[in-house]
């Protein structure tokens, strides 16, 4: 008697669980199967995502297209001891009085040596965004160039390039290093 009622209850519970599962399955996917354990096939969605190994073994990249003999920075330049670096304030490209004096003497040197072609290189300290500093270095070099042109230097003899915060004179992180790195350099092109 006792076992019988137990059995009946068990059946009832099973029935209820089944209906429940059914109901819950229907909420999500109308095509849910009717058994307590949905989905009965093995094939499922296998084999739909075959990796095409395309490219995977091509990973040993060929670098043959690269000209290995390329020189360091393309253009050969040489420092001219008589031409002095000028420095700038943080995030500035205006020329200080001191910088203007130096540019005057640089311009005078160039007039004395008309065969010299000079490249003005603009640099920044490491603070700030790299891309912004590239533009800022360009500004600094251009500021120096236009000042020298206003002093009578032939603009044809002056070119500019920016290295941004690359190639610092002092790679450490100190105010002194930053001040040293915020500069424009004058190099003779060959």
């Amino acid at each position: 008697m006792k076992s019988f009622s137990k059995k009946a209850l068990l059946q009832l519970a099973l029935l209820l669980t089944a209906t429940l599962l059914l109901a819950s399955g229907c909420a999500k996917k109308p095509a849910a199967t009717t058994t307590a354990i949905p989905e009965t096939t093995v094939s499922e969605d296998m084999g739909q995502d075959m990796i095409q190994t395309e490219g995977l073994d091509e990973m040993d990249l060929s670098e043959t297209a690269i000209d290995e003999s390329a020189s360091e920075y393309g253009v050969t330049t040489a420092a001219v001891s008589a031409l002095q670096n000028i420095s700038f304030e943080f995030d500035q490209y205006t020329l200080s009085a001191e910088a203007q004096d130096l540019l005057v003497s640089n311009a005078a040197y160039m007039q004395a040596n008309p065969e010299l072609k000079i490249r003005i290189e603009g640099y920044c300290d490491e603070r700030g965004s790299d891309e912004y500093n590239l533009a800022l270095g360009q500004r600094r070099a251009l500021a120096a160039k236009s000042f020298m042109v206003s002093l009578g230097t032939d603009p044809q003899l002056l070119s500019v390039i920016s290295y941004g915060e690359e190639l610092p004179l002092d790679p450490t992180s100190s105010e002194e290093a930053y001040a040293l790195n915020r500069r424009a350099e004058f190099k003779a092109e060959r």
């Binding site: 949905p38 989905e39 499922e44 990796i51 073994d57």
Partner: peptide
């Protein structure tokens, strides 16, 4: 109690990490 996703990958033995990423 059901399958959520299943994949078969075929590739070189060296691609095993790529399969795992996928």
């Amino acid at each position: 109690r059901r399958l959520l996703t299943g994949r078969r990958y075929v590739g070189a033995q060296t691609d095993v990490r790529r399969m795992a990423h996928r």
